[in-house]
Computed example of a mutant assay.
Amino acid sequence: MARHLYSCPLRWSDMDAFGHVNNAVFISYLEEARIDFMFRLAPGDGSPSFSGGSVVARHEIDYKLPLVHRHEPVVIESWVTKINAASLTIAYEIKDGDQVYVRASTVVVPYDLAAARPRRITAEEKSYLLHYMDDDEKGALAA
């Protein structure tokens, strides 16, 4: 299984009064990594995949350790844990080497903005996502 790696810089304004990254800011970090991951397939190669829009149906976040400001970015690893006909689940770890600050997941629903409704995942999108799917889950999907 491949993992998508995103280098995420920390901003001074991300800190709260207690001197660490505010819990709500982690949602923005996850969004940056998710957009970078999903749009790797899209318009650069002329593919319409994922360019029509998507919506977040669910977030789950486990805060493991406080993250304080520093000049070095953190790495956000992303991978796919579930693919349904009209949704997918992306898992993440925000980390520094072996040090994990956050574990999270997001359920994403592809969305047709023009029709204002959810849409199915295309064959091209599914093929792309399978490269990043957890090997245990990939076996369950094939069964």
Rank of each mutant, 00 (worst) to 15 (best):
S49C: 13
I90H: 02
F37G: 00
R70A: 14
T81S: 11
P73W: 02
S78T: 08
G97P: 10
V75Y: 00
D36P: 02
H71P: 01
L67A: 00
D36C: 03
S49A: 15
I90P: 02
V68T: 15
I76C: 01
Y63G: 10
P66R: 03
I35F: 08
K64M: 14
R40F: 01
D98E: 15
G97I: 08
V55Y: 05
V75K: 01
I90Q: 03
E72K: 06
Y92V: 04
A42M: 00
A85W: 04
A91R: 14
D45E: 10
I61R: 11
S78E: 01
E72S: 10
D98G: 09
V56R: 06
R103I: 14
S54Y: 14
G46F: 06
S47N: 07
I94C: 14
G53S: 11
S49I: 01
P43R: 07
K82R: 11
A57R: 13
D96S: 10
P48E: 09
A57N: 09
E72L: 09
A86K: 04
I83V: 12
R70S: 14
G97K: 10
E93Y: 06
G97Q: 13
G52Q: 15
V75D: 05
A42G: 02
K82F: 05
A33F: 11
P73N: 02
W79V: 10
P73L: 03
K82N: 12
P73G: 03
H59Y: 14
P73V: 02
V75Q: 06
V74C: 12
L41R: 10
L67F: 00
H59K: 06
V100E: 10
T89V: 15
V100K: 13
R34P: 07
T81A: 02
R103N: 12
A42W: 00
G52D: 15
H69D: 03
P66E: 06
A33T: 13
V102Q: 05
A57P: 08
A104Q: 06
S87E: 04
R40I: 01
K82V: 06
S49Y: 00
I90Y: 02
V74K: 04
V102L: 15
A86F: 01
R70Q: 15
V68A: 14
A57G: 15
I90W: 02
S78D: 01
S49F: 01
S51R: 03
Y92G: 03
S87H: 04
V68R: 14
P43E: 06
E93S: 11
A85K: 07
R40T: 10
V80F: 05
P73E: 02
W79S: 08
L67V: 00
P66T: 05
E60N: 09
G53Q: 09
Y92F: 12
N84M: 07
P73Y: 03
D62C: 07
E32D: 12
W79F: 14
L88P: 01
R40E: 13
L41D: 05
F37P: 00
L65W: 03
E60Q: 11
I76A: 00
A104F: 06
R34D: 08
V55M: 08
I35Y: 11
D98P: 15
S78A: 12
Q99V: 15
G97F: 13
H71S: 07
T81F: 00
I61D: 07
I90G: 02
K95S: 13
A86D: 05
R103F: 04
T89A: 05
G44S: 07
K82W: 09
D62V: 10
L67E: 00
E72P: 03
D98L: 12
